[in-house]
Design a binder for these strands. Structure first.
Length: 112
DNA sequence: TCACTGACAAGGG
DNA sequence: ACCCTTGCCAGTG
């Protein structure tokens, strides 16, 4: 549902960035929060949590700072998050992305 | 209105 | 490397 948003909505900003995470790459709650100057990484998780139904937002590419799939419990089934990542060629082991550092993508890489 | 909660992060011991 | 504390800020009771 679309609602009249006059004030800056955290949701919209988070989605805007999340949608641009390249397939096969991942980023973190903190990186998105930092890029948007939201002040708190918790806001990012909160935004994604409240909009799980949006299929066009690759929420599975957003991890915590350790590259762990901390948000997997909110997928149905929980294993879906890992499955989506592996489908993009991202190896996951023990709820953690393998070689997280090389897969990491920061919003600042947006064509500058 | 106050207190507690959370898909988090950074720093200290 | 692990555990605990603090900062963060919108939602909820």
């Amino acid at each position: 549902m679309k609602r009249p948003t006059s004030a800056p909505h955290y949701h919209e900003q988070v989605f805007r960035v999340a949608r641009q995470i390249p397939p096969g790459r991942v980023t973190t709650y903190g990186a998105i929060a930092d890029y948007l100057s939201l002040g708190s990484a918790r806001m990012v998780g909160w935004a994604l949590f409240n909009n799980l139904s949006l299929d066009d937002v690759p929420a599975h590419r957003v991890l915590n700072r350790n590259g762990e799939l901390s948000g997997r419990v909110h997928f149905r089934p929980p294993e879906l998050m890992q499955a989506l990542l592996e489908a993009e060629g991202i190896a996951v082991e023990n709820d953690q992305v393998v070689d997280f550092a090389s897969k990491f993508w920061h919003p600042q890489e947006l064509g500058y």
